[in-house]
Amino acid sequence: MSSEMPAIDRLGVAVGLRTLGALDMAELAQAAERTGLSRFVAMEAWRETIVPLSACALRTERIGLATGVMQVFPVNPVMVALQASELQELSGGRFTLGLGVGAAFVVPRWFGVPYEKPMTRIREFLEIVRGVHESAGSSPFSYDGELFGIRKYSLGDEPVRPVPLHIAAVGPKMQELAGELADGVMVGALHSAEHLGDVRERLAVGAARAGRAAAGIEISYHLVAACDQDGDRARSLARRSISYCTQYPHYLKRFAAEGFGAQAEQIGQLVRRHENDSAEAQVTDAMLERFAVAGTPAECREQLRPHLSGDAVPILTLFPFRVSEQEVMASHHLLLKELGTLGA
């Protein structure tokens, strides 16, 4: 087989950390930029995303920067619009705002906010962020929604740089909303060629509703990527990340659609009982092959081939679930070093 590799300039990398700080994330963003990747994504989990991405903006020059994703329940859309426009200014036009509704069992527990009317909330959120940005250099923005009301807000006398708006959308209704209103859609960590075809169909439905073309809407997905000189260790890390996904109802539906419903249910039960070693052991080779890139640097490079030949954007991710943050960073850096040998 040829050693040539498709271009990696549409590949991204995502990281969400608890103890390692903004400058550690900026160091990884620099490495991704040197390698030739297109995007660095800050994942919102234990840290918010704007401060780390500000550090990344100051330490990089070309790579795109994105939130992946900012949850809409605990924040205000006008303030988010301001943060996005300022980060777009700071980065010189390299920022993409990724938004999502989060998980129903996480939002009340972590943020003290009822998880109510998620579709309405993210629709109004998108419309307000876009409206606030369009108010700059134009007429004041007002909005009379079900959840939000804005009266004559103006961002200023000068136009601001446009900020692409992407939303996290695993289910069909949210994907249709992305087709209607967003510039891009992030379909999560479980994917297949067939699934991405279904996503395009749902985007087309929403786009038709808005009277626009779906072709320009970007599709991206997280790709669990674990790289280690010890291939078995890398595969163990990837299995831990896949088992992490079984905690979420929306991902259980995706596992079932991909033919892994029974296994995922069983793994999820083990995770909820904190029987994590048993959960990891239940992640099959077929699940690993379908949903991850895992192994030695050379093995990972080979496994990336089909992901780099499609039109959706893979975002390399390793969830820090029973994986130390140092291991996450080491895995990303090792894989970026391998990809850097391509000269892309």
Rank of each mutant, 00 (worst) to 15 (best):
G112M: 06
G340F: 14
A226D: 14
L37P: 01
T60I: 10
A330W: 01
G211R: 10
E48W: 12
T19V: 05
D311H: 10
E325P: 11
V170R: 01
G102D: 07
V101A: 03
H307I: 02
L237R: 11
T284W: 12
G179M: 03
D285A: 02
Y248Q: 11
A26D: 03
L165S: 12
L147A: 04
R202G: 04
V101N: 09
A84N: 03
R18M: 07
R34F: 00
L165E: 06
P114C: 10
D24F: 01
A344D: 15
G259P: 13
M186I: 04
A84M: 09
G216F: 15
S38C: 07
G184F: 02
G21D: 15
D24R: 08
E86P: 02
S85E: 09
S135I: 00
L99N: 03
E325D: 13
S38F: 10
A262Y: 08
L190M: 09
R301Q: 03
A262L: 14
S236P: 00
L97S: 05
L288P: 00
L28P: 02
P159A: 13
L181F: 06
I50Y: 13
M5S: 04
G216V: 14
Q326H: 10
R121I: 03
R240I: 06
S192T: 07
A84D: 06
P74L: 09
R62L: 04
G145F: 01
L336N: 04
H333Y: 00
R151C: 02
A57L: 10
L181Y: 04
P162E: 15
G171Y: 15
I150A: 09
V132A: 02
Q229C: 05
T284F: 12
L270M: 11
G100K: 01
S2Q: 07
Y251N: 12
